[in-house]
Design a protein around this nucleic acid. Sequence first.
RNA 1: GGCCCCGUCGUCUAGUUAGGCCUAGGACACCGGAUUUUCGAUCCGAUAACAGGGGUUCAAAUCCCCUCGGGGUCACCA
Length: 531
Amino acid sequence: MTVRTRFAPSPTGYMHIGGMRTALFNWLWARHNGGTFILRIDDTDQQRNIDEALGPILRAFKWLGLNWDEGPEIGGPYAPYFQSQRGELYRAAADRLLREGKAYRCFETKEQIDQDRKLAEAEKRTYLSARRSLQLSDTEIQQSIAAGQPHVVRFLVPRDQKIVIDDHIRGRVEWDAGLMADPVIMRGDGSPLYNFATVIDDAQMQITHVVRAEEHLSNTPTQVLLHQALGNTLPQFAHIPYVAAPGGKEKLSKRKLAQYRNNASFKKLCDKGDSVFSQIGLAGQAGLDPVMVEFYERVGFLPAGILNGLLRLGWSLDDKTEIFSLADAVKLFTLDRVVKAPAGFDPDKMVSFQQHWMSQLSVEEKVAGCLPYLVKAGLIVGHVSNVPGSDGRVENVPHETLDFVTRLVAALGDRIRLFSDVLDVAYFFKDEIVYDEKEFTKRVAKEGVPALLAGYRDRIAAMPEWTVQNLESALKSYCEEQGQPAGTLIHALRISTTGVPIGPGVYECVLLVGRDRVLARIDAAIRQATI
RNA sequence: GGCCCCGUCGUCUAGUUAGGCCUAGGACACCGGAUUUUCGAUCCGAUAACAGGGGUUCAAAUCCCCUCGGGGUCACCA
């Protein structure tokens, strides 16, 4: 049997990080078994522009490198893969159930059903469908239909049954059909409900494993009953826990964003995003928050980092392995290693995986990732081509710029965790620098320091070739002559040339800033300090 | 409230199916130290958990019972 899994998002205009993990587990299970992964679009209930709403979802899959074997853009043997285009299938199935007496037309009004519900609640018993429409004769039903009386199709729950599944993750789970209300399967307007459409599609598309979030566990008895009524082979189920809010246990939700900001590591990520997006012209764009996959792409994460983080959120191999490439994951992933309890989303851990995968990159690869940010922030010139799936290839960058960025990225080393981190050192690209006031006062505007700086300036101005080694030995010997600790000058030099007390080695910084600008900046610092 | 799921360091988890190798292991974060005359990275170290209560057993995180807690879901949403 070929394993066939599916992920069935509804096109909402964004890709939720929790949904992405569900998709990943589906994809991995299919790939692990040499099976087929299907993308199916649940747009039964869709008014808006599908293309626009689907875009970010496909974009996320492409970015992460999770390809689908059947679905949008490529079709497949069970096309169409949009539920909105599969109406015939649902209607036919509903008609069949109706004919076989396994479903019925329900003419009861909403008010009446609400009332039944309230009554049941008041009497502390489980609400069950009253099934009044079942009393209607065929002629009465035909007359009502002819008269255009609104009605829905309900599935007639076989109340004498117990439903048992053997879930890959939860084990044996059991329900009593005698406690279930008759679910609506077709709306008054003839469109199907989710629980029905899913069953039809899963069966027709030959899905073998339904891997989905735990919140669907309560939909399962209805779907099992429906499958049985239709005579389908039951798929296997695996209900994975949902992804929980940072530091909490509730389901991660985009609506509670403001609340998550109380979490320190979540806030850190949000702030990072705010800062980056304001520099590259994406400020305030909807859907760019850490609940959404696109956030990570736009802020400069690596697919490998996100994939690794998502994988470890609710799955583990053993007691020590943390790092997995996608290829590793395909080899090693099994459903029985999925954890049962919901996993809180931890931005810090995400960043730490990211850090690891970034450290695996060559300087050239890092440069390629950083360039789009520099261009978009207007720090260098170049042309960014926005190809989906490989966002932000930069072309037409002048040689000397490329050279410079390469030297910079090499000097920055593992200070670059996200590609957008390169924006933190904008002072290497600008003529004007901004002093960190406190540091300037502490390190430069102090008795004797300007004079020391001035002396060193003269030495290096006369130096024929600037190298890390030359600059360093000149500084050391000069300080020795002056009877000053080298640290005093080193700090003063750093603040004078970059303005800030952080960054690569001070001589690297000097070389990066360049001869003319360094000399000018030292002069400016001396002037500033002696005012 | 009904039905269902889940409970191991702050967080992600290993260990639970087959009780002893668990004075509960790893990772992230935090804290301390070394190193780097900055920052980061790195290395070393520390703190830190079996929800509670009963049982069964020579032995319980693991098996049984009860309690408590958290969550999901109860639509002509998906």
